[in-house]
Every structure is written in C-alpha cells, then in structure tokens.
Design a protein around this nucleic acid. Structure first.
Lengths: 121, 121
DNA sequence: TCATAATTTAGGAATGATTATCATTTCCAT
DNA sequence: ATGGAAATGATAATCATTCCTAAATTATGA
C-alpha cells in the first residue's frame, strides 16, 4: 500500500463528513503535499474494490466517500447537502423475500431538511 | 405545452424501458425530426418539476427517465443495466418512524443479475 | 389583421466530474 | 547497484449535462 493510498484511507477513517475527492485531496495534502487529484480518484477506486471504502454516488453533486464500511444508509439534507449516517433500513434477505429474486445489494438514500437548515427558514 | 415537450412526454408514456435522454431523442425524432438534445434535456427537467416524469439517476451511466410517476422502486441488472419496476419497498411513514425525523422522500435502487444475464454465465 | 412581446427552439460551445495516458519516480528482489 | 513492476503527478481526453444565442414560433391586444 503506497504512502498516498495509506494517507487517503486514513483521512477517510478520521472524518465522518463523507468528503468528496476534492476535499480528500485537500486533507491528504497536509501530509503528502504533491498529491495529485488523479491519484486520489485512482486510489479511491482501488479502496472501494477492496471494500475498505464506500462510494456514495450523489445525484447532483460530486460523489462522496465513506471510510466506514459496516452496513448503514444515508440521510441527506436537501438544503445544505450534508450526509448523515443511519442504521440500515433494509436487509438483503427482506428484499429477496419481497422481490422473489436473488439480490446483490441495494443503495438507499433518504432526503430531509436537517434541523440547522429548517431553523433558517 | 410545446409540440416537442408533448412528444417527449408521450414517448416516455409509451415505453417501459426507462430510456436515457439520447434514447428519448431518437424515439422523439421520428415525430419531430429536427429535435435537439438540449431541448430533450430542458423539457425533461421541466416535466420532472411538474411531476409528470421521474428521473432515475444512474450511478455509472447516463440517467434514465420514467414516464410513470406512481410510487415504485427500481431493480437494476448489474450486467446488462436493464431497469425493472418493482412496488415501493418503503413508505415515507415507515422511514419517519424509524428515523424520528420528517422525511422528504427517498431513492432506492436494488441491484441483481437478471435471469437473461444469469443464464449467460 | 398586424405588430410586438414572450416563449421556445436548434445547434453548438462550455462545464465539470471523472478517467485515461504516459513519462518519471519509487519500490523491492535479486 | 540494477532491472522490472507498480504507482505517481501532470495533463489531456471523455462524456453527460448545461448554457448560450440567434432564429423561429406562439401568444397577445390594440
């Protein structure tokens, strides 16, 4: 595992903000100043393949990445875009029972307006 | 409602394949030969705002569009990318109860390998 | 009916996140 | 040290989507 890959993983494990590739670049450059954005993307993909990192595909914004891979879902504020972790809202088994088919996985995003943003209205 | 917007909506209502903007362009050009891709995108956005059409954001492929807006979720083949409709797997109410927060909506995608693709392996 | 204003279009250029490329650097095992 | 493999940084390419603009179409109202 290269220094850069190591730092990228460590950055993701120290933070619960689900940063974008750009944000990861900034954080990781504190320790690897010459780090390139392409390297961030390449290693994020590798880490996802190794199941050490999870990608959170965003619908209208750059994707985010999550260093915590225990199963959980995401609650997303429509206003500020912040992403919160929530316990799994489904199980593969329940889905397979409902659908009558073998299931590989699921991706669930719940949208709300977070307390902060609600207050501001 | 302009002719082009009308045709785009009609195309979507006549098909259950959840086409992409490009595919919609091809289908709609049979009736409006000069139709431009930008017009397709602009009207798809308008139709989504009016809740007459639903966008299905795809994670690693062009987004798809659905002319049927009654609540339902999607089952997606990891192999061929085909998108199947399935009855809603969640309700807003159940989510709000689980999460203890007011919820605006959710987006759920279930992944599997469809019978056709399974056979081919 | 006609003129004018408002809306929408076609077409092409611009945008921006992500990938690909490639020469150079780093890492080891010999 | 050295040669090959793997990874990097820098930059170019990709490609879905959005933006821009002049021209066309449609609506309005005197």
């Amino acid at each position: 595992m290269s220094r850069q890959k190591e730092v990228i993983l460590d950055v993701l494990r120290k933070v619960r903000t689900h940063p974008t590739a750009d944000e990861i670049l900034l954080l990781a450059r504190r320790r690897v100043p010459a780090l390139a954005l392409g390297t961030v993307y390449r290693n994020l993909k590798l880490l996802c393949d190794e199941k050490k990192v999870r990608r959170i595909p965003m619908e209208d914004a750059p994707d985010r990445y999550d260093g915590f891979t225990e199963p959980h879902d995401h609650l997303i504020c429509l206003d500020c875009g912040k992403v919160y972790d929530v316990p799994s809202l489904q199980t593969k088994e329940a889905l397979e029972a409902k659908l009558g088919a073998r299931v590989s996985g699921y991706e669930m995003k719940v949208y709300f307006v977070c307390p902060n943003c609600q207050r501001e209205e």
